[in-house]
Design a protein around this nucleic acid. Structure first.
Lengths: 385, 385
DNA sequence: AACGGCGTAGAAAGCGCTTACCATCCTTGC
DNA sequence: GCAAGGATGGTAAGCGCTTTCTACGCCGTT
């Protein structure tokens, strides 16, 4: 029924080995033979059997990309860039036949693990983890283990915009483990997975950093410079690295300005969606009617904040300033234009893709970071006197 | 190095066949044996070799999802829904281990074909094509051929929000072929691929319709009802099914109202991005200063339109009304709220996923359509008297 | 003229799994 | 108490490809 290598070989009057060699181009084949084979391939409309070659060659053309929410342009942009890099466009010989498998974890650590297993099972060539990671010790441990196993199996692991999971490494006793919470040292890939040389020469995971902390700091500094002192902060979901890093930047800016850390009631957590912004803003306003600015975890959240303020009859930025994060495409076009921070998402995705292809392999496991850039638009202004 | 079926078998004191049967659960195995095997799997941390089983079983767990632009939430939502449906969550026995491969075509027909070949090569279980298709006859032919070949190979083909490509079927002489352009008959899966029974019992592609035409018609009717008569139309990219269907709806509404078809200069084409909206609006305003409304191909385009109008000092909706399409999440939160049409994207993605899994198979190859719903917000109002 | 090399191509041994097709063994029915 | 039959489990033949090892010419050397 289906055409196989052998059929092509027969038609071209050569052996299957030769056909394989022509198709993979990693062995000298005389030009005449080659074209004869190619013609046969064409005439028979032969299509390689991927599973068979993956089995024989013990490797596959799949690259897994894990995202929290594919419907969120934040991830769409990263995933798109990864795919553009490894996809069929790239005509780096040997590459370009790779397929990106985008996996939607919905932010669930369990699903993340499940997908990782599924990818391991498919013998994926590489795995890219994007977005924020949980900071729950148990899950970090499980994740670290899984990733270690993947690396051991020759799967390249890339962490895009998230730190390497730390693990309470079983072999070195228990105890010291997972210390999450402090600021700073964001993407240096803490203790645990990645740190100690595993002995055999398995590749270590590579981190493509995203400067969440610096971006958040810049945003808060901007607000402070405008004269704001009572700032509400709508952080992302709790126990997530991104949330913590952005919050850390916010706090750092306050500290640098010699101000008190923000009171608990002015820091609310919630998912990265418009409702968090909408209800969060209302709540913040209740807690602190004198609020002059609200920093949102995200552009989408910021949009919800603006809607809430509008519904409350407050003007942006005259009554309350609002900031976002990510600089998604719509941020420039909403009214007023959203002051936010532009994260180099495409660049990060491209870098992640290159690492996944093995085109790049920073010796310290860290791709140099492109800094986040403050984009001041019209949603922020000095508070009314 | 890596653990194989045989290792597990040895450890459990059974044959490889038994282990395979336990893992696939499609053959009776005594409970005691089963748990012994499961324990061995656990202890050895065994992970199935996907390629090997795909080869042996002549089928794989991959489902391809082709999208035009993964960074566009329109596709993100659909793709996410597809994935949620076929992904590891679904615990329909036998399913749930499937992986969605999201492929970003960038709207390029060539890439679309390349991906389709890649998927065929991976022996994907199903392929879902989303978004608008080209209406270029040559590409439609190529696409039809490729899809026919996929179906013949047992790959389930699902068209989500796009018509089946028509082909100037080579066997029936040349000539009649591709008649694109007329309105109506949107998703009925025209002539060409899909229509005639191919003889052997290969599955026919299933279409999950999206009511682009009806939505566009509703939007224009809304505008007409408000009293608008000079309406500019910013259509999507030329020669794409979605563009044509939406435009057809617009025209139909005009015709129903007994009005002239829109003059050429008031219908501009461009990609589905904010720039098309921005520059398109400016251009439209030049062409027809008396314009009272602009219908955009898309919410994103509409956002660009609003930005341009604002920059021109025109108010929405007082001076010019604006409509979008898709009702992406941000449409509700921008100011003024965007009047648009809500397309049941999640529903469509879910349906596509179910068909891809073979859970559903409408006999006429057409999943019943959920209608598009007009969402009137504040970006439209009666024109000034 | 004989020989080592190089450039090509073929033979064949798997890769790790699935799945007929059998071989047991323990029930049952009578 | 014995044969028939169901319930389990094993055997082994591939699935279609890659790749090592080998074979064969033909060339340039010495």
């Amino acid at each position: 029924m289906t055409v196989t290598l052998a059929d092509v070989a027969a038609r071209a009057g050569v052996s299957a080995a030769t056909v394989s060699r022509v198709l993979n181009g990693n062995y000298p084949v005389a030009t005449a033979t080659r074209s004869r084979v190619l013609r046969a391939v064409d005439e028979l409309e032969y299509v390689v059997n991927g599973p068979a070659s993956s089995l024989a060659a013990a490797s596959s053309d799949l690259v897994g990309v894990l995202v929290n929410d594919i419907a969120d342009p934040f991830f769409g942009i990263i995933a798109g860039a990864v795919q553009d890099t490894i996809g069929p466009v790239t005509e780096t010989p040997g590459h370009g036949r790779k397929l990106a498998v985008i996996c939607n974890t919905g932010g669930s650590p369990e699903r993340e693990l499940t997908y990782l297993t599924l990818l391991q099972r498919q013998r994926a060539a590489a795995v890219v983890l994007t977005g924020s990671g949980t900071e729950d010790p148990a899950h970090q441990d499980a994740l670290a283990t899984r990733l270690r196993r993947l690396s051991a199996g020759g799967v390249r692991v890339v962490l895009c915009g998230r730190p390497a999971p730390s693990s309470g490494d079983a072999t070195s006793g228990r105890g010291v483990a997972t210390r999450a919470g402090s600021n700073g040292a964001a993407h240096t890939g803490g203790p645990g997975y990645g740190e100690p040389d595993d002995g055999d020469g398995t590749a270590r995971p590579v981190t493509v950093p995203l400067d969440n902390e610096g971006g958040a700091r810049a945003l808060t500094e901007h607000l402070l410079a405008l004269g704001h002192r009572r700032i509400g902060y709508l952080a992302g979901p709790d126990h997530r690295s991104t949330t913590r890093h952005r919050l850390a930047g916010h706090r750092a800016a306050l500290a640098d300005a010699g101000l008190e850390p923000p009171p608990e009631r002015l820091v609310l957590h919630g998912p990265f969606d418009r409702d968090t912004g909408y209800s969060g803003a209302l709540r913040l306003l209740e807690e602190e009617p004198g609020l002059t600015a609200i920093a949102a975890a995200n552009d989408t959240v910021a949009l919800g904040v603006c809607a809430a303020l509008r519904d409350r009859g407050l003007r942006v930025p005259e009554d309350v300033s609002v900031t976002g994060f990510d600089d998604l495409p719509f941020a420039a076009d909403v009214a007023p234009g959203l002051t936010t921070v532009r994260l180099p998402l495409r660049e990060a995705g491209t870098a992640a893709g290159r690492v996944a292809l093995g085109l790049e392999d920073p010796k310290d496991g860290l791709v140099p970071a492109t800094p986040a850039r403050l984009v001041a638009r019209d949603s922020t202004a000095a508070p009314r006197a």
